[in-house]
Amino acid sequence: MAETMSPPKSRLLDGPRGSKPKSRFSRRNIFLYGTLLLVSVYYLLPLYVMVVTSLKGMPEIRLGNIFAPPVDITFEPWVKAWAEACTGINCDGLSRGFGNSIKILVPSVALSIAIASVNGYALANWKFKGSEVFFTILIIGAFIPYQTMIYPIVIMLREIKLMGSLWGLVLVHTVFGMPILTLLFRNYFTSLPEELFKAARVDGAGFWGIYFRVMLPMSIPIFVVAMILQVTGIWNDFLFGVIYTKPETYPMTVQLNNIVNSVQGVKEYNVNMAATLLTGLVPLIIYFVSGKLFVRGIAAGAVKG
């Protein structure tokens, strides 16, 4: 079969040597794609199971197997998870946690990015004596287990009367987001041509002028990366939420855990899965929409600068 495809001998006296390019169904490819597909199944299975479970009624769950698609699709569990599920004495569903999470998320993301970007800019372009030392401490601090800092922060928040409030948690997220974000921005601003900064100085722009008029407009992509990083990170946080807020201000992850792992009442697996999906929805949407930028964000911590 391959012989007929070769060029006429008159044009190439010696045919090409070596093995033919492999066909699409070579053993190598079957192995390669087979493995990848198999692994994909492992990765997709939990999402699939969650979705089908959340669309079934409880009787169907008790009878059937978790992999079977729902016979009677019902959105009842979703409604219940959102508006009726109970945590303790409150039975207004996950909607409250969602609201809390949004209220925590927006100021945390804005504040942490504003502070870290200016900070990274100062570190990249306006080094002063000791600036690198503080930055090194900050980066080392990122490796310290949160557990060793949690209680002193409780005391500090109490001192400034923010313990248990949303703003206290916003502050905590700003502090703990600072190492990675500062690193991200510092590396980005360092990668911009230094001559641009010099040109702006010759043009008479100062610290803030260069930041707002020259650097900021050039750095939209890195701000988006930082935003993705922070939105998913803060949304997914459990530890700080459970420690620094009170039940009325619990973020969604904490409330979700309380709903699903509550020991009272009959377990409603379909509602639980709907609630779990609801909580995972925000980061999932961000992930699927942002694509490469998400990857860039998480890789930012891994590349040294």
Partner: peptide, 22 residues
């Protein structure tokens, strides 16, 4: 790549609850 990475976007709480169910 999208398939292999998406769980990383999810919180440990969601991960734990999903696998608790499975």
């Amino acid at each position: 790549r999208t398939i292999f990475l998406y769980p990383f976007a999810l919180s440990f709480i969601v991960t734990g609850l999903a696998w608790q169910w499975i």
